[in-house]
């Protein structure tokens, strides 16, 4: 199928050049990174634009910077690059696991984490990890840089707080000692969309963090659940009790993929399994 909408193609090498283009075109430009969402949307006429700006030529955006207490993932970093980094596997296990569960190899080779949060579909796999990590998104326009908390990023299904003239440079993630998992419910392996997903973060001082995707209009932290568990010793009985809080934290819908009852049921099971798994990793050290 061809793309019916004609556009101009730009491939800047510099960030400044890109910001200049964005300030000229405003709403009338789309950033192209991996293209795994944008090209589908252009083909299906869900997106129309006169200008496509490919940022893959900007070397600065392709870097992964790991310092003592922070990790920066540039907006050109693909899921495959995350998976292939032993350091990220060690330091950001939840994001690493989520990356492995994104669609299939052929998609992960192109798709970027930043592209994932920019397309902001409710089912995006990388969101629960970024939410439990309290990640920050660094954006720039001609008027300067700003940093946006991931908690403020998603404003609705397929909507973010990013302004048309802004370019995402990358994501900052603080390094903390923790264990955790990302549990995903899909129809089959290799499929792109999660029907439900939960990121779970635990640490030595009994901090517990949870975030979901696909069971609400935007991915979100599960604060009631966190408050209930905070500082407590995890036991089977406590997990049972906590499970009852889950329905009040989520607002799943029924659609072609599954019913809201099924999603709720599976969220409880994934929470239970995921928390047990995370505790085992925390106690046993990383495998």
């Amino acid at each position: 199928m061809a793309i019916l909408n004609d556009f101009k193609y730009y491939k800047p090498k510099e960030i400044n050049e890109t910001l200049q283009l964005l300030s000229e075109f405003k709403e009338n430009a789309k950033i192209l990174a991996g293209g795994t969402d944008l090209i589908v949307h252009l083909k299906e006429n869900l997106v129309k634009t006169e200008n496509v700006i490919d940022i893959k030529g900007i070397t600065e955006l392709n870097k992964i910077d790991i310092s003592k207490d922070n990790i920066f993932l540039g907006s050109g970093v693909t899921f495959t690059e995350i998976i292939e980094s032993p350091e990220l596997k060690d330091k950001l296990p939840i994001l690493w696991e989520a990356s492995k569960k994104v669609a299939s190899v052929g998609i992960r080779n192109r798709a970027t984490v930043v592209g994932n949060i920019c397309s902001a579909v409710p089912s995006l796999d990388s969101a629960p990890a970024l939410l439990v990590y309290d990640a920050e998104i660094v954006v720039q326009s001609k008027n300067g840089k700003r940093t946006i908390s991931i908690h403020d990023w998603f404003t609705g299904p397929k909507q973010t707080i990013l302004k048309p003239e802004e370019l995402v440079l990358g994501i900052n993630i603080p390094i903390t000692i923790h264990a955790g998992v990302y549990e995903k419910l899909g129809r089959y392996r290799g499929e792109d969309l999660a029907q439900a997903g939960i990121g779970i973060f635990v640490d030595e001082i009994k901090n517990y963090r949870f975030a979901y995707c696909a069971v609400g209009p935007v991915p979100k932290r599960m604060k009631k659940l966190e408050d209930f568990l905070q500082g407590k010793e995890i036991s089977d009985k406590l997990i049972e009790e906590a499970t009852e809080i889950i329905p009040s934290e989520i607002s799943p819908i029924t659609d072609i993929r599954s019913s809201k009852e099924y999603r709720t049921h599976m969220m409880k099971i994934m929470f239970k399994r995921g928390l047990q798994k995370s505790m085992a990793i925390l106690k046993g050290g990383r495998s």
Binding site: Y9, K11, L32, G35, T80, V105, G106, I107, R110
Partner: peptide, 13 residues
Amino acid sequence: GRSVRSCLVLAIE
């Protein structure tokens, strides 16, 4: 060297 879906790539890229 990496597998990609050619239906999701612009030729110009």
